[in-house]
Design a protein around this nucleic acid. Structure first.
Length: 420
DNA sequence: TCTGGGGTCCTAGGACCC
DNA sequence: TCTGGGGTCCTAGGACCC
């Protein structure tokens, strides 16, 4: 058996933990650059604010209903997420962190115990210890646990925990009430194709022949079908798999028309990416840079391009990555466009020892000492205390807009919550 | 005026090998 | 006259997730 613990309205709930005045009020959290709505409290959902809706389209409703608006504060959300995981692991040993607000739990080690009871205890504890409300779904496969979780959220009488019934008829009734689009693994495209085939609910999907799913879609869809029938195809990954790629990108606060600004943005992404790579003890052998105009501005000429080069040998040294990223970026750049976004992607990521180079003249030992010194200073004195100047030294238009970010209550001494 | 960021997996098709 | 069969690797694009 598996359980899925999912934080309710996670970012909105995080905002409430240290600001109880937000309780019972509609709250929304915005994406980077304060562009779209990425989280809504229950009250905001009831008003009809949609997930992913651009803020400028709901300004009226925000004013009319006095909705509280927050920029996203990932430092805070990430920290609270870790506390939720820590609390859960107190009750269930085998867990997989699936996303910032979801945890899968393998319940087999708890065989013989009342699984629903354990999950209820875990839910209460998370609420008390972290202030974050969660819902838990229990089922024989991960896909069914997801569905149970959805039901737990929807039906207040279940008090936040739903165990999928074992009896066939009862379970089928539940599956029949779930829209096929709401099944984990079925997105918009597949949902519309499935509807054309007469498949409208999770129950319909579970009854579709495996070979048909394989033929019309792919093995991923086939697994989903099997999982809905109770045949487990996806296990809890209790060890996080090593990453394969790393991306740093942002859309700009205001559009960029000068290479000097674009260069700062690319440099900043390259610097951050290299830093994170070192933090994880990894190196990358492939570097890509991309830039694009604003796809929503149909009145302006469009341009988007990416370029990529090998890095030999694989590296995490900032100056190496930086120099190459700027060279690629310069090659992509064309005057005359209004750029809205740029980014850097590192791939072919390795951990441990890499292939060396026969004619390598670079002093890697020196690189290593330099990076170590820089990282140590930044760790102790604050991020960005020592950094390459090409990333820019003053506030510029390309930098991200964040008009209403709450304090980083749990990770900064100078932003600790105070009592009056 | 204003529209996010970061991932994974699968498949088809082309290039290449013997 | 007649022109095979069995592979691997890479990439781009499409789908999905949060």
């Amino acid at each position: 058996m598996y359980a899925l613990a999912d934080c309710n309205n996670f970012y909105a709930s995080c905002e409430r933990v240290f600001d109880p005045s937000l309780e019972r009020r509609p709250v929304i959290v915005l994406s980077n650059n304060d562009g779209c709505v990425v989280a809504r409290s229950q009250e905001a959902k009831s008003i009809g604010i949609a997930m992913g809706e651009p803020v400028f389209k709901c300004r009226d409703r925000i004013r009319r209903h006095r909705i509280v608006v927050r920029s996203s504060n990932y430092t805070l959300y990430h920290d609270l997420s870790q506390r939720v995981v820590q609390s859960l692991s107190h009750f269930v040993p085998d867990i997989e962190i699936y996303s910032i607000d979801e945890v899968f739990m393998d319940l087999d080690p708890l065989a013989g115990r009342d699984l629903e009871m354990v999950c209820r205890q875990a839910r209460t504890a998370v609420g008390r210890w972290t202030g974050i409300p969660i819902s838990v779904g229990i089922g024989p496969t991960r896909t069914l646990a997801k569905i149970a979780n959805r039901i737990a959220k929807r039906d207040p009488e279940l008090d936040g925990v739903c165990r999928l019934p074992d009896e066939k008829a009862a379970r089928e009734d539940m599956l029949a009430a779930i829209d096929v689009q709401d099944v984990w693994g079925v997105g918009r495209r597949w949902a519309s194709r499935l509807r054309e085939l007469g498949v409208h609910t999770a129950l319909d999907l579970s009854r579709m022949p495996t070979t048909e799913l394989r033929r019309c879609f792919n093995v991923v869809a086939m697994r989903t079908g099997l999982e809905l029938r109770g045949e487990s195809c996806l296990d809890v990954q209790d060890v996080a798999l090593p990453r394969k790629t790393m991306v740093r990108s942002r859309s700009f606060g205001t559009m960029v028309t000068e290479w000097s600004e674009m260069a700062e943005a690319i440099a900043t992404h390259a610097i951050r990416a290299a830093e994170k790579l070192r933090l994880e003890g990894a190196r990358a052998a492939q570097l890509s840079v991309f830039m694009s105009t604003n796809r929503f501005r149909e009145d302006l000429p469009q341009y988007h391009r990416s370029g990529s080069e090998a890095m030999m040998p694989a590296t995490s040294t900032t100056p190496v990555i930086l120099k190459q990223a700027l060279a690629i970026g310069r090659g992509l750049w064309k005057d005359g466009y209004h750029y809205k976004k740029a980014g850097v992607m590192l791939s072919d990521i390795t951990f441990g020892h890499d292939q060396g180079m026969l004619f390598d003249v670079r002093d890697h030992e020196r690189d290593h000492r330099l990076m170590e010194a820089m990282d140590q200073v930044n760790l102790r004195m604050g991020a960005g205390t020592v950094r390459p100047a090409v990333g820019g030294l003053r506030k510029r238009g390309w930098m991200m807009a964040q008009r209403c970010r709450s304090p980083r209550y749990t990770t900064r001494w100078d932003e600790l919550p105070r009592t009056r």
